[in-house]
Design a protein around this nucleic acid. Structure first.
Lengths: 238, 238
DNA sequence: TACAGAAACTTCACGCCGTATAGTCTCCTC
DNA sequence: GAGGAGACTATACGGCGTGAAGTTTCTGTA
């Protein structure tokens, strides 16, 4: 018979082991990069056999998918919190807070960033259906919120490109859209371009393609953010 | 004794084999992603033993480094050509041509793009000293040229951030700088931000983080480019 | 309390990988 | 035609993910 009852000793142990596997995997990734996530290394660290992990995760890719979900969630939590903490009355400040939180998280968790946005793990193939859907959804909502906050000021500067709703309906933004009824198609396009700016600089920085060219990425990002906010018709804070 | 004489049969065969190894490696990468670059797979394809490749490349990483150099060079050639072909008198047109060439190449060679700008191959560690120096230098020069062409129009819009030469001297841009004597530190910062914009959107697109959000990245990139050019104080062409 | 069965874990095995070492064959040069 | 350099193979080692089968440990029920 299945155990069924909640709080059973077995279930507790199982949950702890599962957590330890993930913890060790993240530790290995932090110290040795995404390549270091191997079942054998994890098992070694835990004093187990590699095959024992198959009792908790069907395949290595399954484990990686889980990790991505959790890391993605941590990112979403970070940027959401930064957004929520900034006063709602000042769109520029909120956008800057969101962007800084995003960059800060990425620099503090470069392996996590790679795991989410790069070629993560040798041979890993993201599953079709529900990979990191919730966190991706939340980050996406955050981006849309940026554009929504700026749109009243930036709209007249960016109402180009002849975008249609059909350009976005299939994607994540299509699902996020109802939450921002005042955002027209051009506003959604603006959101994506904002996302491109922020992700672009941060990605260059995390992957080290900036280090070879400038000593002070901090100042550069600050300037980018200032210009970005200005281009939205807002006055940058601090 | 070493052969010494040029045009020797042995040398010719050797050069051909070297070329074939690289050709097969690129083919494997194109069909199976960067993961597919394995010495054994290459050798299998060529009817050889994996160890035979060690006669041509010291290690697998050596082979990958060579591939990166060549792919990087192809990219540099592409964007350089696009830049040179566009009339020098119209900065906006040149910038758009460069950017479109960059995106076009990236979309046509997604694995190559990953090889250069992403986490390329499982376990691969780029060598310290002279990895892809020439092509990187050329792409960097291209970026600086973009900023240089736009600076007379964009300067007054972007002369912020209090940048110093010391922010760039150590990097690639420091070495490129003499070629653009009229570009001030803020102009170099602008170049890096331009690069961030272009790289950012293209990278999102290549890695598929855009596909989940919009159906028509083409239109989006077009719009981004238009706004970018406009933000430089230029009038976008076509 | 004894026992059946589920769950956790190990052992063994297979085929992949990079790579080190030693040996073989072929062709060029003197 | 002999010597040697260069191209390539055979074999082996350790690491990887993963499948199948076996062993131990725990747990709910009779």
């Amino acid at each position: 018979m299945t155990v069924g009852t909640t709080g059973g000793r077995r279930e507790r142990l199982r949950a702890e082991t599962t957590a330890e596997i993930k913890r060790v995997a993240l530790k290995l990734m932090a110290s040795g990069g995404p390549d270091a996530i191997t079942l054998r290394a994890i098992a070694r660290e835990m004093g187990m056999t590699a095959n024992a992990i198959y009792g908790y995760f069907a395949t290595r890719d399954d484990l990686v998918t889980t990790l991505i979900n959790e890391v993605y969630t941590a990112l979403a939590d970070t940027v959401d919190a930064a957004w929520a903490q900034a006063p709602a009355g000042r769109p520029a400040g909120r956008i800057q807070a969101w962007a800084r939180a995003f960059r800060g998280w990425a620099l503090a968790n470069p392996e996590g960033f790679r795991l989410i946005y790069g070629d993560p793990v040798p041979g890993y193939q993201a599953p079709e259906g529900g990979a990191a859907p919730d966190a991706a959804y939340r980050v996406c909502t955050g981006i849309a919120a940026l554009a929504d906050a700026a749109w009243p000021h930036a709209g007249h500067l960016h109402a180009h490109g002849d975008f249609q709703w059909s350009d976005f309906d299939d994607g994540l933004l299509g699902k996020v859209r109802p939450a921002f009824p005042d955002l027209p198609p051009a506003g959604v396009a603006l959101a994506l371009r904002l996302w491109g700016h922020l992700h672009g600089l941060v990605s260059l920085e995390v992957y080290g393609h900036l280090r070879t060219q400038t000593v002070d990425p901090d100042k550069l990002f600050q300037e980018e953010l200032t210009q970005l906010v200005r281009s939205l018709g807002l006055e940058p804070g601090d």
